[in-house]
């Protein structure tokens, strides 16, 4: 065990396992080159939520106030799931799309690069 501890039995349960989120899982979403939102955001979402609901209901509440948001062409969004290029199936659930607990989704919107192209 790598931790140097006073006690041999230095062992704690992981605090953020999926079972602690009352049926939800934590999903992170980041919008590349839109750092007006200071960090990617975290949502507690049901695993059976369709991906289309994430895009159509969750994200507008999170990002809708950005002037780039209404201009997004959702067919051209480039997604990454946990660092790898990813094409979501909009009708399938988050779980079926491979969006697991503490997965990180990133979206890039080519041509929309933040306020005045500044990445903000």
């Amino acid at each position: 065990m790598p931790v140097n501890a006073i006690r041999e039995d230095y062992r704690f349960p992981a605090k953020d396992v999926e079972a602690n989120f009352h049926g939800n899982r934590v999903v992170y979403v980041g919008w590349d080159h839109h750092m007006m939102f200071c960090a990617p955001v975290a949502f507690p979402l049901p695993p059976d939520m369709p991906f289309s609901a994430l895009v159509g209901e969750v994200l507008p509440n999170a990002y809708g106030m950005h002037p780039d948001f209404p201009q997004i062409d959702w067919d051209k969004v480039e997604w990454k799931l946990n660092g790898k290029p990813f094409t979501p199936d909009m009708d399938a659930s988050l779980d079926a799309n491979g969006v697991k607990h503490k997965s990180a989704l990133r979206m890039r919107t080519p041509g929309l690069e933040g306020i005045g192209g500044s990445g903000s």
């Binding site: 992170y28 980041g30 007006m36 939102f37 200071c38 960090a39 990617p40 955001v41 975290a42 949502f43 509440n61 999170a62 106030m65 990180a104």
Partner: peptide, 9 residues
């Protein structure tokens, strides 16, 4: 502007 979502830490 207030960010309506909680951040990833």
């Amino acid at each position: 502007f207030y960010n309506p979502s909680l951040p990833m830490l």
